[in-house]
């Protein structure tokens, strides 16, 4: 799998990361190397279609909680990190 600069840039935009030119070089080289190692291995094994994909080692069912309201007490600690206006978080106009 070749990872060209264009594709790397597209992926970077998907995850909202801007890379410096230096970083781009290093990352592209590293990822190419990893993919080569992986592709070589994947080519040698035959993964059965019917094999079930595993999401997590957790084998028990989900535990649900009751529909009860609880207030988070430490409001100041929760919201104080970045400046807010009139109780709202704010960012540049999105539209």
């Amino acid at each position: 799998m070749s990872l060209e600069k264009e594709e790397l840039k597209a992926i970077a935009e998907m995850v909202q990361i801007e890379m410096t030119k230096e970083e781009e070089e290093i990352i592209q080289k590293d990822l190419k190397c990893i993919f080569k190692l992986m592709d070589d291995q994947l080519q040698k094994i035959d993964i059965h279609k019917e094999l079930k994909p595993m999401v997590s080692p957790c084998t028990h069912p989900n535990r649900l909680r009751q529909d009860k309201v609880q207030y988070f007490e430490e409001k100041e600690e929760l919201l104080g990190a970045l400046p807010m206006k009139n109780g709202y978080f704010y960012v540049p106009n999105v539209l």
């Binding site: 990872l3 594709e7 790397l8 992926i11 970077a12 998907m14 995850v15 990361i17 890379m19 970083e23 290093i26 990352i27 590293d30 990822l31 990893i34």
Partner: peptide, 14 residues
């Protein structure tokens, strides 16, 4: 984000 984490994220998104 550090370089190592950036690499991991980009790889993961890919």
């Amino acid at each position: 984000l550090e370089l190592g984490l950036k690499e991991k994220i980009l790889f993961g998104a890919y």
